[in-house]
Simulated scan of single mutants.
Amino acid sequence: MSDRLKNKTIIITGASAGIGASMASLCAERGANLVLLARSYEKLLSLKTDLESRFHVKVDIHKLDVSSTDEVQAVFSKVLEQLDRVDVLVNNAGYGVFREAHEAKIDDMKGMFAVNVVGLMACTSMVLPVMRQQGSGHIINIASQAGKIATPKSSVYSATKHAVLGYTNSLRMELSSHRVFVTAVNPGPIETNFFTIADEKGTYVKNVKRFMLKPEYVAKKVVDTMLTPTREINLPGWMNAGSIVYTLFPRLFERLGRRMFNQK
C-alpha cells in the first residue's frame, strides 16, 4: 500500500455515507488525517469514532449543508483556522431527482444547482488560497457520466454535472502553474442511497441494477489517484467509451440509445 497519503490532510464533503464514507475509511487506513463534512452529524460522529479507533488518525467532523454558502464560509473558515495545510479536497456532496423536464419542480432545480454546482464551487473557493500559497494540493470533484451523456428524465441533474465538468476543466488550467492537481470523477450509477431520492418509483434501479458500481470500488479508484496528476476517472470503462462515441456521433447515439435511455 502506498504511503503517499500518510499524515496528509484530506477534506471530504458528503462524507457520512456511500462513497464519501468509503473514501474516508480508505484514507484513514493509509494514514491520512481527515476533516469530514455532511448534514448528518450523528453519522459523522459514528464514523469518526470507528476510524480513530481502528487507524489512530485524527478525524475532525463538522455539520455542513453545502447548499448554504453562508454555512460553507463559516465552517470552512473554522476548519482552516485549525489546519496548517490542506492537501486534498474531495467535493463529494450531491444529489439528483429524475423527472422529465415538464414535471421538474422549481425547488428541485434550485436545490440540485445549489448543492451540486454552487456548493461545490463555494467549498473549492475556500481552500484555493491555501493550496495556491502552499504550492501543492488536489481538488477532486465527483461529477458523473451524466455530465458527458445527457439522458431523458435527468435533464436538470445532467445540467448540473455538465456545469461541474466545465468548472473542473477551467480550474485545472488555472492551477497548473501552482502545482495543484484537479480531477473529475465520472462514475455511472452507484449502489448507494442516492437513488432513494433520485428514483422514487424504483424503475431505474430495477433496470440498471446489474450495471451498478459498488461504492467501495469507486472510492478505491479515487483514493488511489489522490495527489497524482490524474485528469479524469471514468467508470465503468464501457460507459465512458459510450460517451466518446456520443461526442463523435451524437445523432446516431441518441437514436440507437433511445430505448435504453428511457428505462429510467
Rank of each mutant, 00 (worst) to 15 (best):
V208H: 14
N7Q: 02
A24Q: 05
A24H: 07
R255N: 01
P250E: 01
S2E: 00
G188L: 10
R132N: 15
N169E: 14
E81S: 15
A15K: 02
I149N: 05
E103W: 15
R179I: 03
V164Q: 09
R39N: 11
S144R: 01
F76C: 12
K209W: 14
I190A: 15
V90H: 11
N33I: 00
M260S: 05
V72R: 02
Q263D: 06
G135S: 07
K8E: 06
R259S: 03
S22R: 08
E81Y: 15
S25A: 12
L44F: 14
K201G: 06
K58V: 14
F211S: 07
G242T: 08
L89M: 12
V130E: 12
K209V: 14
M109D: 09
A241T: 09
T196Q: 08
F98Y: 10
L171F: 14
L64I: 09
E81R: 15
V180Q: 05
S177V: 09
N116Q: 07
R251L: 00
M131Q: 13
V223N: 06
K209Y: 15
Y95S: 15
A143N: 12
A21P: 14
D87H: 08
V66I: 02
V182M: 07
G14T: 08
S154V: 07
M226H: 02
V117I: 07
